[in-house]
Design a protein around this nucleic acid. Structure first.
Length: 269
DNA sequence: AGGGCAACCCGGACGC
DNA sequence: TGCGTCCGGGTTGCCC
């Protein structure tokens, strides 16, 4: 599912390909995916260029030349495709933005959305998010500050966007595996060494996942060999019954606060 | 504060 | 083949 590394991969690949190009045509197939009437949405976008693409947690922010922004959240199962009608994937496309002969298809937006906001609205929309895991200002001291008083399960806390932003179901498990800690452990019972390992492991896993291209089923464009590269190096997520990459013990699946949770029962403590 | 749960949505998987 | 049913997943909001 699209979490921080997937959105960062999209951000990087799209930045090279659509920034600076005028939006020539906008097609809305599902009004629920946007936040204002389609005619107004189209009018606001048409002729604009995307000046920059930013990422905040699992959101992408398309900065428009008008000064407004498009806030994208793919939620579950949402993805994008950049191409044309010849090679476009045969799926439900809720929104299509054309850049001349190249189109950006927003696909599988069920609970996902593409909302248009001014600066003030955008700030307000993102105001409840915790720190960015990979931000250089997010230090071990900050990490300690935030997590020391937490008593809940590690898994539950890591996926809480108000505590720290960008970690979802897949990477919370991947991070726990990396540092050999069971996701169901409680934060307040972690040894100081485990606490440090968790902080470093989080950064390591995210850097590795971004480098690999994230965990995605579909390419962003034709001959895209980057997107989804993490699928094959994924350690535990969606690998129930498969051997642990460290000790060969079958990975187990458990439900933790109504979420699928994968871990190695042998080498995670 | 933490935990549990329902609601949101609908493509896709599965069963018959 | 085709129809019906169910599930999943991030987020929000509500309850205990």
């Amino acid at each position: 599912m699209p979490e921080l590394p997937e959105m960062e991969t999209y951000r990087r690949l799209l930045s090279e390909r659509i920034v600076g190009k005028p939006m020539t045509e906008i097609e809305i197939n599902r009004e629920k995916s946007i936040n204002i009437p389609p005619s107004q949405f189209i009018q606001e976008l048409q002729g604009n260029t995307i000046t920059k693409i930013d990422r905040r947690a699992k959101h992408l922010i398309f900065q428009l030349s008008s000064g407004k922004s498009l806030l994208l959240h793919l939620m579950l199962g949402g993805w994008m495709y950049l191409g044309n009608d010849e090679d476009n994937p045969d799926r439900t496309k809720q929104v299509i933005v054309s850049f001349g002969n190249e189109k950006l298809y927003f696909i599988g937006l069920r609970l996902g959305y593409l909302h248009l906001y001014n600066t003030k609205e955008l700030t307000s929309e993102l105001s409840d998010l915790g720190p960015e895991p990979l931000d250089s200002t997010f230090t071990i001291e900050k990490f300690q500050e935030i997590f020391t008083e937490r008593r809940g399960m590690i898994k539950t806390t890591l996926v809480n966007q108000e505590v720290i932003a960008g970690i979802g179901n897949c990477y919370s498990d991947e991070i726990c595996f990396e540092v050999r800690i069971k996701p169901i452990r409680k934060f307040d019972e972690l040894e100081p060494s485990e606490f440090n390992a968790l902080f470093n492991g989080m950064k390591t896993v995210f850097h590795r996942a971004i480098e690999a291209g994230g965990y995605m089923d579909n390419p962003l464009y034709k001959n895209d060999h980057k997107t989804g590269g993490y699928n094959k190096i994924c350690a535990v997520y969606d690998r129930e019954g498969e051997p642990c990459k460290r000790c060969q013990t079958p990975i187990i699946l458990e439900t933790v606060s109504s979420r699928k949770t994968f871990y190695c029962p042998n080498c995670q403590n």
